[in-house]
Amino acid sequence: MEHSNKTEVFRQGMIIFIFLAVLTALEFFVAVAVGAVVLLAIIAVVKVALVMYYYMHIYKLNTKDEQLDRHSYEYKLNTRRLGLWLFLLSDTFVFGGLFVSRFNLLGLTRPDLNQLLGLTVTSVLLLSSFFMNRAEASMEHGDRKGFIIGIVATLILGVGFLAGVLGVEWPNAIRAGVTPSASAAGAIFFMMTGMHAFHVLTGVIFLSIVLRNGSRGIYSPEKHWGVEAAAIYWHFVDVVWIFFYPALYLIGKLI
């Protein structure tokens, strides 16, 4: 993957994005037409697998580097990657706990939420992952302008997602009677979206730092761990939403 040229990498990112978009549309259709939880789960797992492999490059954890000098940048880079993935594994347990709590409290029912809005914010986050991937690929191939455009697009979409969830969805839900204190359903909805939004917010801060440092020319095609880490983290936040979106909006009967 490292040796392929930029256009190829861009094309691959685009193809994966199209797959993800189609799967999301399919997911929505399945939920409306069939409502089969198993199908929804399968689609979510496929989406997550695509993101983890093609956007988060999980296979890089398997880099063989026993021969490298322990103090070399390359060796340390792989250690940092491992550390970040371990952190994400740990974080998965927070979201996993929330996910399980949702099913414990609500079973196969769901709160009444604005479907159009849900689909919109999901698409916004998905699109941001696409631009994030493009920004990272640009940096890898020394295209600083492409990198900055990609990061800025990701940031705008990320802030857009936050505005959509916190600024539109939350007031909407409260107006519709789904408030944090009214019922356990409202509580878990606000807890899940809130915890996720908190991670998006930290991702936005992280990306801003990367944007600032990147525009000052601190990263190079060989050394840009900050960019890679921000990208992996950003895609992880997307992965969480890939599970949360069907769990909150699509699965089960309306309460």
Binding site: S101, S181, S183, A187
Partner: peptide
């Protein structure tokens, strides 16, 4: 903590919550 601060009823049976959770 959130249940105490904001009245979120995760573990409050009166709000459909579940202390066993």
């Amino acid at each position: 903590m959130f249940q105490r601060l904001l009245g979120m009823g995760f573990f409050d049976p009166a709000k459909g919550g579940n202390p066993i959770l």
